[in-house]
Design a protein around this nucleic acid. Structure first.
Lengths: 139, 139
DNA sequence: GATTGACTTAGAGTTAACTTTAAGGAGTAA
DNA sequence: TTACTCCTTAAAGTTAACTCTAAGTCAATC
């Protein structure tokens, strides 16, 4: 029920280096066995995955450090956790809007270039046709 | 119908430094007057805004450089432009999904903490009530 | 005449989040 | 025994995209 660094690294798709870095930063701190080998619990894994999710929507490691500290502090940190989550949710909602708008912009541009290529191909075909016709007529 | 660097900087919300940097990188290249002052045309402005949009959804300046070069090359660049746009659209769609999922996750967490705070408040109120009652009974 | 806003080059500094290196040591599985 | 995975520290290197500095010049406007 515990993962060694190499396993976890493969499971969640980040390097062992990065996992050690996260430990140094206090983000994901596994237990050690008598040989000093890291053992990541299921909770450690879930926490790491949560971090990756939040990072993936633009939360900074600094914010994630604060978040982790608050979480460790137990009940008294709850309001702080909420504050961070709500502020981040605002950013995520803005980004969502931003991405939606830009997707539309991209679609418009893509449509434009695609039809301009189509037109171009049609024009070339016509040119070829005229050329062939001309040469045929010459014969 | 043309902007000087300071004006454009304010209009589109990036620093003059950055505009000069973009010029050096070949991204937005304004005309110069006889005194060597930059004059950004309406097209320059639109291009700059387009760049900011694409950057805002994660396109790198390197890709934007290629894009700009292709655009300058005219008709023969069209297929290349399309390729970049379509590839970027893919990334934007993935990000959109990612943000949607994370928004849900955030909402779940926020709900959880909010109700746990509510419960806590209720419990505290109850404690206070018991305390008051106890003291009143003592009298 | 003073202020404002523009210009130049060349290079150094910043930030976040890794990523790599060096150089060695130790436990475990086939 | 060989290979594999793990461990350590400390520090240097990387990347993108700026951001700033210095030191000076120039033109327009109040």
């Amino acid at each position: 029920m515990a993962y060694r660094i190499g396993e976890l690294s493969k499971l969640i798709g980040i390097s062992e280096h990065t996992l050690r870095y996260y430990e140094k930063e206090g983000l994901v701190v596994p237990e050690r066995d008598k040989n000093n080998i890291r053992h990541y619990s299921e909770d450690n894994k879930l926490w790491a995955e949560f971090i990756l999710h939040m990072k993936g929507t633009g939360m900074s490691l600094d914010d994630l450090k604060s978040y982790t500290q608050l979480w460790k502090s137990g009940e008294e940190g709850t309001e702080g956790l909420l504050e961070i989550l709500i502020s981040h949710r605002g950013k995520v909602m803005n980004q969502l809007e931003n991405y939606k708008k830009n997707l539309e912009l991209l679609n418009t541009k893509i449509d434009f270039y695609q039809s301009s290529i189509e037109k171009n191909k049609a024009a070339n075909l016509y040119e070829k046709f005229v050329h062939i016709k001309k040469n045929r007529d010459k014969l």
